[in-house]
Amino acid sequence: MADDDDAARTALLPAATLPRGRTVQVGTAFAIAAVLMYFGGLFGIYLAERSVVRTAGLEWIPGSVDIQLTAPSIILWTYIISMPLAAWAVYAIRRDDRKHAYMAFALVLLLGAMTINQAAYNFDSIGAVADNSRAETLIFLIGGSHMVLTLVGMLFFLFTAFRALAGQFSSRYSDAVAAAAMFWYVIVFLYFIIWLLITVSK
């Protein structure tokens, strides 16, 4: 009975106005610029320190650290696979295809969790000690920062997924989902740079 009353009352309430388009995306773009510069600063220090050490004829990454290509490459592929899924979430929500949008959200979150798990395993297995050398400190800092960034990206997706579940995103308004996807692409881009910098060129 009470549920019926609620339903009747809800039906009488006006629907919320659409938020203004582009606002969330523009804000996210600015945040992305800041994130890029944070990592730019770290990459710059990494390269500068590496250059100093190598110019002196020394070993940059200590022999005790074993950075292999396999695990980071799998992480990179996991990230790459997550990109079309993020795009799928946007595509689906713009067509009011909620079922597939929820699937895409869930898959992005799953792959995000997988990358964090793999990165943690990778840190554990390379035999690096955070304060052993400049290289190791920087590897931990860059990798750790990227893990936190991935977590933030997942939270962004989780928030949008929740509001999508509540019916607040649709073909008429999907900016927040698009913004979450924009943010996710940058996470993948940054991992690609990290992969090149630390795993490939070391």
Binding site: A33, A34, V35, L36, M37, Y38, F39, G40, G41, L42, G44, I45, A130, D131, N132, S133, R134, T137, L138, F140, L141, S145
Partner: peptide, 23 residues
Amino acid sequence: VSFPVLLAVLALSWADLRGDVVV
């Protein structure tokens, strides 16, 4: 585009000081 570079330097300072050996 400049404050995050400062943040990166601060993060490195913190990570460095946190360890047993300051490198």
